[in-house]
C-alpha cells in the first residue's frame, strides 16, 4: 500500500514530466480540466488542474471535477511515477475513470506521451 505522501510525490513527478514537454503544453492549450485523483484504500485525494496548457496539482478534493480517477494507492503511485501505464489497470477494472470517453482517451494519450517508450 502506498502512502498519501507517495501519491503526492508521484503527481509531482508527473507534473514535472509534463512541464518539461513543450509539445504537450501546446497540445493541451484548448483543454482546461479539473481531474480528481482518489485512492480507494487509503484517505487520499488530489486535484490535477490543466489550464491554458499548464498542469498543476494540489492536495485535496475539487468540488466539480471533469474527470475522476479512482484506484488503489499502489496503482495510482505506480501510474503517476510512470512505472505502469493506465491501460492495463483500466482494462482489468483496477483503475476507474469517470468522465466522457473522449476525455478518458485524451488523458491516456497525455500519460503515454509523458512516459511512453
Amino acid at each position: 500500500m502506498a502512502t498519501h505522501q507517495e501519491i503526492t510525490e508521484s503527481l509531482k513527478a508527473f507534473t514535472e514530466g509534463y512541464s518539461k514537454n513543450q509539445r504537450l503544453k501546446a497540445m493541451n492549450r484548448d483543454w482546461d480540466r479539473n481531474v480528481l485523483v482518489l485512492a480507494d484504500d487509503i484517505e487520499s485525494a488530489h486535484t490535477l488542474v490543466l489550464k491554458d496548457g499548464e498542469l498543476s496539482f494540489s492536495e485535496g478534493k475539487t468540488v466539480d471535477p471533469d474527470l475522476t480517477v479512482i484506484s488503489n494507492s499502489d496503482t495510482l503511485a505506480d501510474m503517476f511515477f510512470g512505472d505502469i501505464t493506465p491501460t492495463e489497470p483500466y482494462m482489468n477494472g483496477t483503475l476507474r475513470i469517470i468522465g466522457s470517453e473522449d476525455d478518458i482517451l485524451r488523458l491516456d494519450f497525455i500519460s503515454l506521451l509523458i512516459w511512453g517508450e
Partner: peptide, 17 residues
C-alpha cells in the same frame, strides 16, 4: 515517434474507443 509512444498501449484498448 508519437506512434511508438502510444500504440503499444492503444492497441490494448477496446477497438470501439
Amino acid at each position: 515517434e508519437i506512434a511508438h509512444k502510444t500504440l503499444p498501449e492503444m492497441v490494448k484498448l477496446p477497438f470501439h474507443m
